[in-house]
């Protein structure tokens, strides 16, 4: 197991380094990072996805030196360990706590048969129901619905109603090139869609954070680091 280096999707965004989940046999962080950065020639800002690792100020300083050897600058830390984030904040890094990641059951990787691809726009009155993940290649128009046991992915504009995790999977998410739904549902949580117009050119995702549906720019990596 090695840390996973994810280059920035576009300039202006940091690269990301993902530490694997801790297990009985996982190697110490410096070793993993060494492996993960092998052959990496990126340079610039880097965001550490620390997962459930407990890292001290000393660990983070050591990491900074390791990264510097690759012209990478640690600018932020995200993860579920509050103590790691406190340490990171203490040395001036930006931090973000992932509240749910620890509690969520890690979603099982989906078998390909679980992915249902809908080619073409769903129009008013259409209702696509899928056991696994739904991928719509087209728009979901106002008045149309998509329900999926897993994720709802829309390669187009989502303007109807989407329900991800309709059998209760609270880790399911809804991703669309343009996310302006009438209503969103994830597991049992329901939210009205946002009224302001979306940031142009950003793929957005909705997921459950602290029992509320939250919309962010979609993560540059897929699947997201929690899996």
């Amino acid at each position: 197991m090695a840390a996973d280096f994810v280059p920035a999707a576009r300039s202006g965004l940091p690269h990301q380094l993902m530490l694997p989940a801790q297990g009985p046999e996982t190697a110490p962080v410096p070793e993993q990072v060494n492996h993960g950065l092998e052959g990496v020639i990126g340079s610039g800002a880097l965001l550490l996805q620390s997962g459930d690792w407990l890292l001290t100020v000393t660990d983070l300083r050591a990491l900074e030196r390791q990264l510097a050897a690759h012209q990478l600058e640690l600018v932020g830390v995200e993860g579920v360990q509050p103590l790691t984030l406190v340490a990171a904040a203490a040395i001036g890094l930006t931090t973000r706590l992932h509240l749910n990641a620890a509690a969520e059951p890690t979603p099982k990787p989906l078998a390909s048969s679980d992915l249902v691809i809908q080619r073409g726009t769903l129009r008013s009155g259409d209702h696509l129901q899928v056991e696994g993940t739904a991928l719509v290649l087209g728009d979901v128009n106002p008045g149309a619905r998509v329900s999926a046991g897993g994720d709802v992915l829309v390669w187009g504009r989502l303007r109807g109603v989407a329900h991800a995790g309709c059998h209760g999977d609270s880790g399911a998410r809804i991703v669309a090139l343009q996310l302006r739904p009438l209503q969103l549902r994830i597991a049992e949580v329901i939210a009205r869609g946002p009224e302001d117009s979306p940031p142009p050119g950003f793929c957005e995702q909705a997921r459950l954070v602290d029992g509320l549906i939250r919309i962010d720019p979609a993560e540059p990596s897929w699947p997201p680091f929690s899996s």
Binding site: G120, L122, R123, S124, G125, D126, N141, P142, G143
Partner: peptide, 16 residues
């Protein structure tokens, strides 16, 4: 109008 467009969309789906 929103309602007319919504119904038109439904009909278009059926025609398609």
């Amino acid at each position: 109008e929103v309602s007319a467009v919504r119904d038109a969309d439904r009909v278009i789906g059926l025609l398609q």
